Simulated scan of single mutants.
Amino acid sequence: MKKAFLLLVSVFIIFSCTKTEEKPDVIVDIKVSKNGYSPNDITVKQGQVVLFRITATDEGISAGYGSSNVGHCFYIMPPYDVLVKNIKKGETKEVKVKMVFPGDFLFTCPYCSGIFPTKGDLHVK
């Protein structure tokens, strides 16, 4: 019983780890600002490895908000649960994600989503 449980947990961990170092199948360039993401509606194929390149075009949240989180971020909601944070003006950060879960998912900036319209839709077909 214990071995079966450990096997199940291992399989879950393997399949739930969507960040990867695999070669990307597609590259998606995203600009983020206080006006939101561009593009804010993205469609990819299930099974693809997507390289998201996120560039901040403005300062986003400043340190004056009392947080160590500054700039913008890019967060794909669970089950992906992928976060790229502290993207400062003019900076580009990258993350590769294996699109294993089909469906429609939200991506957002948790830092400023209550202040600015920073959200978008990710469709995995």
Rank of each mutant, 00 (worst) to 15 (best):
K2E: 15
K3W: 12
L8S: 13
L8Q: 08
L8A: 13
V9W: 01
V9R: 03
I13Y: 06
C17W: 10
C17P: 06
K19F: 09
K23C: 06
P24C: 08
P24F: 06
D25V: 05
V26Y: 12
V26A: 12
I27Y: 04
V28Q: 00
N35W: 11
N35G: 14
G36K: 05
G36N: 03
N40Y: 07
T43S: 14
T43M: 12
V44T: 05
K45L: 10
Q48A: 13
V49C: 07
V50E: 02
F52I: 07
R53E: 08
T55W: 07
T55Y: 00
A56E: 03
T57R: 02
D58N: 05
G60P: 01
G60F: 08
I61P: 04
I61A: 15
G64F: 11
G64E: 15
S67H: 02
V70S: 03
V70L: 03
G71T: 04
C73T: 03
C73Q: 12
C73F: 07
P78S: 10
P78E: 09
Y80P: 03
Y80H: 05
D81T: 12
L83G: 09
L83F: 14
K85P: 03
N86E: 10
K89N: 11
G90R: 10
G90S: 07
E91C: 10
T92R: 10
E94D: 15
E94I: 04
K96R: 15
K98C: 07
K98R: 15
M99F: 09
M99L: 09
V100G: 14
F101C: 11
F101V: 05
F105S: 09
Y111W: 13
C112P: 02
G114H: 14
T118K: 02
T118L: 02
G120H: 02
D121L: 15
